[in-house]
């Protein structure tokens, strides 16, 4: 039954869930799975629509494999205590990349200023 109540007295004096399928958790689970499917399809279609064609099967397979590997690797990830350890060496490795990014940003800003000056002239 969709309604968990059979009489108006029960319904009007209810203290607790009054929503549809309140007495049918199986149905709620099914609805939630459908909602999850909608969300996943939305994310998937947002990629395929922007390209104006379906995502290639190879790319989709790679994406699925990457996702599965990521999920399966979860038990082998470092524990919280391990993650908190200082990792100065690894951070240092990223510094050249960060510098490169800053240089790129500075370069684009410099170009913009120069272009603006050119326009004013």
């Amino acid at each position: 039954m969709i309604s968990p109540f059979s009489t108006f007295e029960e319904f009007s004096e209810a203290e607790g869930p009054i929503y549809t399928f309140a007495n049918n958790p199986g149905m709620i689970t099914l609805l939630l799975l459908l909602c999850a499917a909608i969300v996943l399809y939305f994310l998937y279609s947002s990629f395929s629509m922007k390209q104006d064609r379906m995502m290639s099967p190879v790319a989709l397979s790679l994406l699925l494999i990457a996702g599965t590997v990521s999920l399966l690797s979860m038990p082998f990830q470092p524990t919280q205590s391990e993650a908190r350890r200082p990792q100065t060496e690894r951070q240092a490795n990223w510094q050249p990349l960060a510098l490169l990014g800053m240089m790129g940003t500075g370069r684009s800003m410099f170009d913009r200023k120069r272009r603006a000056r050119r326009v004013r002239r």
Partner: peptide, 10 residues
Amino acid sequence: DLYHPALVIL
């Protein structure tokens, strides 16, 4: 006033 949130989404 009556729908479960999952039903609302659907």
